[in-house]
Design a protein around this nucleic acid. Structure first.
Lengths: 160, 160
DNA sequence: CAGTATCCTGAACGATACTG
DNA sequence: CAGTATCGTTCAGGATACTG
């Protein structure tokens, strides 16, 4: 097993003082970083979102997520299971049947993530046009890189 | 990861179409995925969080983020700038002075992310104990891998 | 069916050196 | 100061084959 996060990394848990919101970022060793990395993970969110609608079997997930490899699905599910976000149920039948479902913790994560999804959907147009503008500016720069300063704005100029 | 989004229900699997409102996840081409990837980025959030408190110069960020390389900071800032999340201001003075600040869009992103941070801080203890439990179960499995089935519970068993 | 074990590649990242 | 350019390495993750 070469993947995965460092298991058995015993970090000091317990009730540390709740550092204010402006501090979480600089603390690399902070748990937040780890969780964020899991959330950030390419497949985790997809799996969580799918499982939010219903419990599913391994192969179902493999089909639905589509793009995920068998190995990565396994790894992802194991991580989520380890973090207590999904629960794995094995039915001892002859063709093995395994089902995955969100735990209550997983459900809360899913709703927390939803706000980000909403943000993204809300602002995707803005972002797209910002990118277009940026790329246009870059293009202009390219064609202009021999010319002299055309807009003597005298102050600081934006977007180089 | 270039396409393969469409997963037409070509196989005979009943009548219900796979998913409804929760479509964002399966659409790889969707903007949501891209934004999520940016958010997921190792440094982006750190930079955004720092800039949320105040506008900063390049070297300041380099010092504050600490752990980031010069190259990665540049790359990160360029991406954020391109997405319209931060604004770059160049002062035409003799030792170059460049300042970065969040745009209003960047500010909204920051607050959206805060909810996730809060979630993480709220549940980090639960996660930590879930991990401990999982690891303990794995250990038990190891020591048990020669034994015969000791608990014929007849039903589905949890956590393999 | 639901995995595990191996091999391999490309993208990400860090380190370093150079520049306006 | 605030970058850009180049190189070397690591490693996440895909493809494939095997198994209980």
């Amino acid at each position: 097993m070469e993947e995965g996060t460092s298991k058995s990394a015993s970090y000091s848990e317990g009730t540390e003082d709740p550092y204010d919101a402006c501090q979480w970022d600089v603390r690399e060793g902070c748990e937040v970083r780890q969780i964020l990395d899991r959330i950030a993970d390419k497949w985790s969110l997809l799996v969580v979102a799918l499982l939010a609608s219903r419990r599913m079997r391994f192969t179902e997930l493999l089909r639905e997520v589509d793009g995920v490899s068998q190995r990565m699905l396994t790894v992802t599910l194991r991580q989520l299971e380890r973090d207590g976000l999904v629960e794995r149920t094995v039915y001892p039948v002859v063709p093995p049947r395994v089902e995955y479902e969100l735990t209550s913790l997983g459900v809360t994560l899913h709703s927390a993530v939803q706000s980000l999804v909403v943000w993204t959907e809300t602002h995707q147009v803005e972002i797209a046009s910002a990118r277009a503008a940026y790329d246009r500016a870059q293009q202009a720069l390219e064609s202009d890189h021999g010319r002299t300063d055309p807009a003597p704005g005298a102050g600081a100029r934006r977007a180089r």
